[in-house]
């Protein structure tokens, strides 16, 4: 009886791991790194988490969860509220379609997939914020932000693969 209950709790906790890592990634995206000019092109680490979990554990990142996580980032980062909620929902829906193919791909193909994903999210963010402000924002800082985020993929993936292996014995 007790072991059944414990295994039930363990399964529930296991299912929350992608969401918890996403919350942690949002929280580490916001504090300052004190690097000159970094604030304007800062990496959004939560994009890494959204991509990884949407590919390998899509059933654990529900559309509504993606929406709430995007909203959480919006409120904490001070960007127009709803912008990343929109980006996260659309990204999660699209990644859900290609998760099978991406999940079976090798690392370089996966990185290429992430590159396309970041280009898409950065462009959507640039367009949405430009419409919101009523003026076209400087695309150069958005480009550098995208480059930095793509460059962080191998490092972030190492951590997420480690978590996957520990929790789900896959990855």
């Amino acid at each position: 009886m007790l072991s059944n209950f414990l295994s039930f709790v363990e399964n529930i906790a296991r299912d929350q791991v992608p969401m918890i890592t996403m919350i942690v990634l949002v929280l580490i995206s916001v504090p300052p790194l004190y690097l000159p000019h970094y604030g304007g092109i800062a990496i959004n680490f939560s994009l890494l988490g959204l991509f990884y979990w949407s590919v390998y554990k899509p059933q654990l990142i529900h559309l509504f969860t993606a929406f709430l996580l995007g909203l959480f980032y919006d409120f904490l980062a001070g960007v127009p509220v709803g912008m990343f909620a929109l980006i996260f929902v659309v990204s999660r829906a699209l990644l859900g379609i290609y998760s099978g193919r991406l999940g079976a791909a090798n690392f370089l193909s996966l990185w290429l997939g992430f590159f396309l994903f970041v280009v898409g999210t950065s462009f959507t963010g640039w367009l949405a914020s430009s419409l919101w402000y009523g003026v076209f924002l400087d695309p150069v800082s958005v480009l550098f932000h995208a480059i930095l985020t793509v460059a962080s993929f191998p490092f972030g993936t190492v951590l997420l693969v480690w978590i996957s292996r520990k929790v789900y014995q896959v990855g």
């Binding site: 504090p31 300052p32 604030g39 304007g40 990496i43 980062a77 001070g78 127009p80």
Partner: peptide, 15 residues
């Protein structure tokens, strides 16, 4: 103390 500043290219604010 500044505890948040990295909002990327879309906004320039601090917490």
């Amino acid at each position: 103390r500044v505890i948040g500043d990295a909002a990327g290219p879309f906004v320039r604010s601090l917490i």
